[in-house]
Amino acid sequence: MPVKLAQIASWLQAEVLSGHEALEREVLLAHAADMMSDVLAFSHPGSLLLTGLANPQVVRTAEVAGIRAVVFVRGKRPSEAVTLLAQEFDLPLMTTAYSMFDACGLLFAQGLRGWSLPEGRA
Protein backbone atom coordinates (compact mmCIF):
# COMPACT_ATOMS: atom_id res chain seq x y z
CA MET A 1 0.00 0.00 0.00
CA PRO A 2 1.62 3.29 -1.05
CA VAL A 3 1.63 5.79 1.81
CA LYS A 4 2.60 9.46 1.72
CA LEU A 5 5.43 10.57 3.99
CA ALA A 6 3.19 13.25 5.47
CA GLN A 7 0.82 10.48 6.57
CA ILE A 8 3.69 8.48 8.12
CA ALA A 9 4.87 11.57 10.00
CA SER A 10 1.34 12.10 11.30
CA TRP A 11 0.83 8.47 12.40
CA LEU A 12 4.18 8.44 14.22
CA GLN A 13 3.88 12.01 15.54
CA ALA A 14 7.30 12.40 13.97
CA GLU A 15 9.39 15.51 13.59
CA VAL A 16 10.65 15.99 10.03
CA LEU A 17 14.40 16.69 10.04
CA SER A 18 15.01 16.99 6.32
CA GLY A 19 12.92 16.78 3.18
CA HIS A 20 10.04 19.02 4.33
CA GLU A 21 9.29 19.69 0.67
CA ALA A 22 9.13 15.95 -0.12
CA LEU A 23 6.28 14.86 2.16
CA GLU A 24 3.96 14.16 -0.75
CA ARG A 25 6.24 11.32 -1.87
CA GLU A 26 5.04 7.79 -1.24
CA VAL A 27 6.69 4.70 0.21
CA LEU A 28 5.56 1.26 -0.95
CA LEU A 29 6.85 -0.95 1.86
CA ALA A 30 8.66 -0.63 5.18
CA HIS A 31 11.83 -2.24 6.51
CA ALA A 32 13.08 -2.03 10.10
CA ALA A 33 16.71 -2.74 11.01
CA ASP A 34 19.69 -1.53 12.97
CA MET A 35 22.10 -3.61 10.88
CA MET A 36 22.85 -1.86 7.62
CA SER A 37 23.88 -5.12 5.94
CA ASP A 38 20.37 -6.36 6.68
CA VAL A 39 18.99 -3.34 4.82
CA LEU A 40 21.34 -4.02 1.90
CA ALA A 41 20.38 -7.69 1.83
CA PHE A 42 16.64 -7.61 2.30
CA SER A 43 15.07 -4.21 1.77
CA HIS A 44 13.27 -3.35 -1.44
CA PRO A 45 13.70 -0.10 -3.39
CA GLY A 46 11.05 2.47 -2.58
CA SER A 47 10.81 1.35 1.06
CA LEU A 48 10.64 3.33 4.26
CA LEU A 49 13.48 2.46 6.67
CA LEU A 50 12.90 2.50 10.43
CA THR A 51 16.12 2.37 12.42
CA GLY A 52 17.68 3.16 15.79
CA LEU A 53 21.01 4.04 14.18
CA ALA A 54 21.69 7.67 13.34
CA ASN A 55 25.13 7.74 11.71
CA PRO A 56 26.28 8.66 8.18
CA GLN A 57 26.21 4.99 7.12
CA VAL A 58 22.42 4.96 7.48
CA VAL A 59 22.16 7.71 4.88
CA ARG A 60 24.71 6.08 2.55
CA THR A 61 23.03 2.69 2.94
CA ALA A 62 19.69 4.29 2.10
CA GLU A 63 21.21 5.86 -1.02
CA VAL A 64 22.74 2.55 -2.11
CA ALA A 65 19.63 0.47 -1.39
CA GLY A 66 17.11 2.90 -2.90
CA ILE A 67 15.40 3.64 0.43
CA ARG A 68 12.91 6.48 -0.03
CA ALA A 69 12.85 7.90 3.52
CA VAL A 70 14.23 7.15 7.00
CA VAL A 71 12.49 7.26 10.40
CA PHE A 72 14.72 7.30 13.47
CA VAL A 73 12.97 5.60 16.39
CA ARG A 74 13.01 6.12 20.18
CA GLY A 75 13.83 9.80 19.77
CA LYS A 76 17.17 9.28 18.04
CA ARG A 77 18.47 12.39 16.36
CA PRO A 78 21.33 12.42 13.85
CA SER A 79 24.09 15.01 13.87
CA GLU A 80 23.96 18.09 11.67
CA ALA A 81 26.49 16.42 9.33
CA VAL A 82 24.17 13.44 8.81
CA THR A 83 21.21 15.72 8.08
CA LEU A 84 23.28 17.66 5.54
CA LEU A 85 24.35 14.41 3.89
CA ALA A 86 20.69 13.36 3.63
CA GLN A 87 19.84 16.69 1.98
CA GLU A 88 22.64 16.09 -0.51
CA PHE A 89 21.02 12.75 -1.43
CA ASP A 90 17.49 14.19 -1.35
CA LEU A 91 16.59 11.71 1.41
CA PRO A 92 13.80 12.75 3.80
CA LEU A 93 14.55 12.06 7.50
CA MET A 94 12.22 12.10 10.49
CA THR A 95 12.42 11.17 14.14
CA THR A 96 9.73 9.68 16.39
CA ALA A 97 9.63 9.14 20.13
CA TYR A 98 8.06 5.70 19.65
CA SER A 99 10.22 2.58 20.08
CA MET A 100 11.06 0.43 17.07
CA PHE A 101 8.38 -2.10 17.99
CA ASP A 102 5.68 0.46 18.60
CA ALA A 103 6.51 2.52 15.51
CA CYS A 104 6.37 -0.62 13.34
CA GLY A 105 3.17 -1.74 15.00
CA LEU A 106 1.46 1.61 14.43
CA LEU A 107 2.40 1.62 10.73
CA PHE A 108 1.34 -2.01 10.27
CA ALA A 109 -1.98 -1.30 11.94
CA GLN A 110 -2.54 1.46 9.36
CA GLY A 111 -1.90 -0.96 6.50
CA LEU A 112 1.76 -0.47 5.64
CA ARG A 113 3.52 -3.79 5.01
CA GLY A 114 7.01 -5.31 4.75
CA TRP A 115 8.41 -7.39 1.91
CA SER A 116 7.95 -10.77 3.61
CA LEU A 117 4.15 -10.76 3.49
CA PRO A 118 2.42 -11.60 0.21
CA GLU A 119 0.28 -8.46 0.46
CA GLY A 120 3.48 -6.38 0.79
CA ARG A 121 4.58 -7.55 -2.65
CA ALA A 122 1.39 -6.56 -4.37
Binding site: M35, S37, D38, L40, A41, T51, N55, Q57, T61
Partner: peptide, 16 residues
Protein backbone atom coordinates in the same frame (compact mmCIF):
# COMPACT_ATOMS: atom_id res chain seq x y z
CA UNK B 1 28.69 -3.14 15.07
CA UNK B 2 27.67 0.27 16.36
CA UNK B 3 27.95 1.53 12.80
CA UNK B 4 25.45 -1.08 11.67
CA UNK B 5 27.99 -3.45 10.12
CA UNK B 6 29.81 -6.57 11.25
CA UNK B 7 26.82 -8.91 11.38
CA UNK B 8 28.57 -11.43 9.16
CA UNK B 9 26.53 -10.51 6.11
CA UNK B 10 29.03 -8.52 4.06
CA UNK B 11 30.59 -11.27 1.95
CA UNK B 12 27.28 -13.17 1.55
CA UNK B 13 25.69 -9.90 0.38
CA UNK B 14 28.51 -9.43 -2.11
CA UNK B 15 28.04 -12.97 -3.41
CA UNK B 16 24.28 -12.57 -3.67
Amino acid sequence: REMGFGAGMGLPNIKR
